[in-house]
Structures are given as structure tokens and as C-alpha cells.
Design a protein around this nucleic acid. Structure first.
Lengths: 195, 195, 195, 195
DNA sequence: TATGAATGAGTCTTCATTCAT
DNA sequence: AATGAATGAAGACTCATTCAT
């Protein structure tokens, strides 16, 4: 029956994801999830102890499922193409209001951090993204596509801007145009050497 | 008695600020503030209806008190000097763990945004910061200090990076070195034309 | 300054009466009255200890002011005329929604009775009304206007019906027609002997 | 478990009824009922949202359980017998101090009425009682038992007197003798034609 | 007298969590 | 495994009442 259990657990995660996307992290109660899943109060506790654990598994699961732009990219793509695809991907995520977990994740990370619990995983995710971008930019520089003195600095700059955009999207709101402006600015900075 | 009342209100705001800095927004209850202020339950309600109102007034008050780097800067400062001071100020704020409201404010803005209430004021603060930076960069370009094709884009880039850094500081944590790296990257981008 | 105090007290009573008429007895708080009177919280306590005391004084005052139909009636009125006037008066009171204290008084009497405190005054008011009606009917019988075997029984019947009508008016609501029907029934019972 | 739940709900209703009978409506808090039922604070909220809802269900339940004098009466009863039984029933209810909900119900109806919520059900109960009494009196008139020009008027008169008696019982208090006097007066009015 | 800030008790209400079935 | 009733702790909120000014 472990199969059935796994399916139920997945059902909970899928449903809970919508709840987190809608209400963030702190406002979501076990009761909310129980009701959204239409299962019994006790039933939820068989699988998860609290909302924290649920969100963690959702994040974990997301990370696994998220197909990596970089690993997917083929040999015949230039660094510029890959970066463009990556940025387009980010834009899509920034604009998705439904299903957008970023606010929930921020709230969750704020909360962990304020309790002095580390969020190593998220930090790693950030650094590894920086690493990948760094390599990409280096490649671009090598084959003359990009012009950049400090690939790592540029990579970090891109990632911080993306964080900033996520925040803007979860607070004041952000338009498609706003995002384009930022992403174009980034691209043009790397291509500036062409001039 | 209005004078005494004003002083008491200020005492509450000052004390509550520490509580928000420590616990964020969502975790702070009226009870927390009552206990921190060492006043009675009902006593707090004389001045404030809920934690939202308290945080709002704190933010308002902060904004009033925050002396503006730009307006303070003197005639004999170059654009580069002013920008450097501005960034140093940001750094100081990013590193202040005590008294740092940014997490509370983010939680508050997430919450308002998720309830479809606008946060015009914060949005304006962001845009006006962008405007000021834009002018500053333009001045720098005019007198040959900076090299920049798109001052407004650069200004926005700076602001988004700062947002990203705030997030990093409230989540994974951030070192003085990390901040320096980012700020130097920004400065070097503007000075790049010197080469 | 006792004069000024008396005027203030009267102001409170007049204002509180409106509040009681609108909200009944149990729902009225000292705060409600303070706000309606636009005086200070402590100020009210100088004159009254609680809402019970206020309502009591209002009732007292009402009773004093209410000009008595019977004592007002002149020599040349027949018993039938006086009774008709009395019933018309009752009708007016039953239909007055504004300024109608009856619900507040009932709530107050229920409350006193449930605490085993007597409401002698109200009880007396009822019996004395019965007495006066009894005499009136007796007079009417003597001069051949009315036909009635049991004047006291008839008087009591009238008073209970009026109580019943008050209740109906404070609960389901009552129309002018409903009242007329009842009052006519009463009158026709007394005049029935004419046939 | 729905069976157990139903029994628990009933237990709450039974216990709450005693509380309402003792304290009326407005003075009863959820806490009072929790304590009377010896259940937990949250436990009560599983079944009822507020005291209003509880009293409503009690009234509903009472109405269902109340076995109707009229429908119970057999063929060989005369109209006079049935009316006498009905009035005796009313007397019993008027004298029952324990278990007497009338004050609570009046407070509840006052409250609803003052909030402009209709109390259709109670109003209907009144009118249907009037209807039944009207038919009864008509029957009595037909077979010569009663003498009455206006059966509907008489029926309404009886009902209003009963309301008046209920009020008297919940306020000044009332003796068995007082009730007898009124009921005899009513009966004698209908039998008056015998003379 | 008059004010209104301050207190603290009392109630409401919601949930996390447990547990018998 | 699953259910959902039950518990109790926690926090919100409102007022009656007091008291320094």
C-alpha cells in the first residue's frame, strides 16, 4: 500500500502548493491544507508534522522537477542564446501569479533565518546558479560573444537583480515591461564590448 | 496630556520597532508588543488597532527621520563621492542585524500585496530612489566621472541589486565581503569608461 | 453649581434615553452613553454608577412627566370617552418606534427578576392602572354606558392585552390595524350589553 | 460517529436550555455553556457558532417536541374541554420557573427585532395558535357550548392575554391565583351566553 | 468637577495536536 | 491508514472602573 500512500502524499503536496502560492507561508495553517485537500485532520499528520515540513518537501520536489536550462541546452547554442533562454525562463516565472511560490519561500527563509536556522540548501542553490552563469559568461567571453572583465561579478549581479525583481513582483507588483527593461540592461552590459 | 500621550506613543513605536526587527511582521502579536512595552493589553489599543498600523507608523516615522544622503551632500562632492557615500550607507543598513526592519517590511508588503492592497508608498520610495540615482549618474557622466550609456537603467540595476542584497541578508545571511563585492562591481561598471 | 450639575445630569438622561430606545437595556454600555453624550468616561461616573441606575432614573422621570389621561379627563366626559382616549394613547405609544423604551424596560425587568430583585414600582404601576380602569368601568356600568359583570376582570384583561401588544410590537412587529382590532374588540366587549 | 455526535449535540442543547432558562438570552456566554456542559471551549464550537444559534435550535426542538393539545384531543371532547385543557397547559408553563424559556426567547426576539431581522417563525407560531383557537371557538359556538360574536377576535384576545401573562411572570412575578383569575375571565366570557 | 489615559478581567475564536474508533 | 471529535493554549478585543492631573 506504499504506492497508494505515495500517491496520497503527492496529492497533498500538489494541493498544498496552490495554497502556499496563494497565501504565502505564515498564513497557511494545517487546517487550510486539510480543507484544501479534503482529507481528515488526523490524516494529514500521518504524512507531515507541520506546514514547514510540507513546504520543504514542495521546494525539494520543485527543484527536482525543474528542468535545468543549462543542462538542457545543446551544443549548437551560443552562450548568448543560453543566457537569453535562461532570462526568458526567469521572466516567465516572475510573471506567473498562480503557482508562484516565491513569496512563500521568502517568508519561509526569513522565518528560518530569524530563528538562526540555516538555509544552506537555498544558499547553495544561489551559489551554484552563480557558478553556472559565471562559466557561461566565461565561455561567451572566450568565443568573443560577450565582453566582460569580471564574469563572476556579472553573474552575481544578474542573480541579485533577479532576486530584486522577485521581491518587486511580490510586493509592489511588476509589469512585463519592467522585467524586459532589466533583462535587456543585463544583456546589453555583456554585449557592450561589441560596440 | 497630549504631550504625554505623544511621548507614550513614541515609546511604543520605539519598542515595537525592536520587536519587528527581531521577529519580522507576521510573528508579532499585539501581546508581544504589550509585553515588550510593559503596558497593559488595553493600553496598547488606545494608540493602535493592530500590528499593521504600528508597523505602518514605524515605517512612516523612519522615512521622515532618515536623513537623505543626497540632500545632505555638499557642493564640493563629486557624483562619485555621493554614490560612494550612498552605497556605504546601504552597506551599513544591510549589516545592522539589530534594528533592521527590512524583513518585517518585506513580510508586511507581501501580505498587503497578497490581499491586493497596494503599497503605493513603498513603490514610490523605490522609484524616487531610482530617479535620484539617475540624476546623479547623469551628472557624473556630464563631468566625465562616469561612463554610462543608460543612466536610468544603471540606476534601476543598482536598486534591484540592493533589494537582492537585502533579501540575501534576511535569508541566507550575507557577509561584509559579499556586499563589498557587489558594490564594487557596481562602481567599477560606472567607472569602466576610464579605461 | 448644583444647577449646572442638574442640567448636565438631565442632558445625560435625555441622551441615554435615545440610546436605550435604540438598543434595549443589555446592549447598552457605559461607553455607549459616554460617546452619545460626548462627555468623558470619568465624567459619567460622577453622576451614575452603571446603566441600571441611568435607566431607573429615566423610567422615574418618564413616570413623573407622563400626564395622566384619567386625571386630565374632565367632568363632561363619559366613561366611554375616557376609555377611548386612554386606548388611543396606548396605541400612539405602541406605534412610536423612536423614543420607545418598552423593550429596554422589559429587558431591565427580566434582568432584575432573574436576579430575584423585585420590581415593586412597575408592579404597582400595573395594579394602579388596573384599579383606575376598574373604577372607570364601574362608573360606565352605573350610568348604563357599559355592560360588564366583572369590572376588575375586564380591567385586568385590558392591561394584559396591552402588555401582549407591547411584546408583539417589540418582537414580530405590529401594524396600526392589528392594534385597532384588539382595542375595538375590547371596547365592543364592554358595549356588548347595548344590543 | 454521527450518532455519538448527535447525542452530544443533544446533551449540549439540553444543558444550554437550563442555562437560558436561568439567565435569559443576553447574559449567556459561550463560556457559561461550556462550563455547564463540562466540555472544552473549542468543543462547543464544533457544534455551534454562537449562543444565538444554540437558542434557535432549542426553540426549534421545543416546537417539534411540544405535543399539541389540539391534535391530541379526542373526538369525545367538547370545545370547552379542549380549551380548558389548553389553558391549563398554559398555566403549567407560566408557573414553571425551572425550564421556562420565555424570558430568554423574548430577549432573543427583542434583539433580532432591534437588528431588523425578522422573526417570521415566532410570528407564524402566534398566528397559527390564533387560527386553531378561532376554529375551536367556532366549533363551540356551532354546538351551542360557547357564545361569541367574533371568534377570531376572541382567539386573538386570548393569545395576547397569554403573552401579557408571560411578561408578568418574567417581570413582576405572578401567582397561581393571578393566572386562574385571567383564565376564568376568558372562559366566562365565552360561556356568557349561557346565562 | 471634569478629563481621558491606564489597567486588567472577561469573552470570543481559532488552531495545533491528540486519540479513540 | 484514516477519521473527525475533543482538548486546551494562545491571541484578539472590549469595557467597567480607577486615578492622576
Amino acid at each position: 500500500m506504499s504506492d497508494k500512500a505515495a500517491r496520497k502524499k503527492q496529492l497533498i503536496l500538489d494541493t498544498a502548493k496552490k495554497v502556499f502560492a496563494e497565501k504565502g507561508f505564515k498564513d497557511v495553517t494545517m487546517k487550510d491544507i486539510v480543507e484544501a485537500c479534503k482529507i481528515s485532520r488526523g490524516g494529514l499528520y500521518i504524512y507531515f508534522e507541520n506546514t514547514e515540513q510540507i513546504l520543504e518537501e514542495i521546494i525539494e520536489h520543485e527543484a527536482t522537477q525543474r528542468d535545468d536550462v543549462f543542462s538542457r541546452s545543446r551544443k549548437d547554442c551560443t552562450a548568448g542564446d543560453i543566457l537569453a533562454i535562461f532570462l526568458k525562463e526567469q521572466k516567465k516565472e516572475l510573471l506567473s501569479t498562480k503557482d508562484n511560490l516565491s513569496v512563500a519561500i521568502y517568508e519561509y527563509l526569513f522565518w528560518k533565518h530569524s530563528r538562526n536556522e540555516s538555509c544552506k540548501r537555498e544558499q547553495d542553490r544561489f551559489s551554484s546558479a552563480v557558478d553556472v552563469l559565471t562559466h557561461l559568461i566565461e565561455n561567451g567571453v572566450e568565443n568573443g560573444e560577450f565582453y566582460c572583465d569580471d564574469p563572476e561579478g556579472a553573474a552575481r549581479n544578474i542573480m541579485y537583480v533577479i532576486e530584486g525583481l522577485k521581491i518587486a513582483s511580490g510586493t509592489y507588483g511588476i509589469t512585463s515591461q519592467d522585467i524586459d527593461n532589466e533583462l535587456l540592461y543585463i544583456m546589453s552590459g555583456l554585449l557592450a564590448g561589441d560596440e
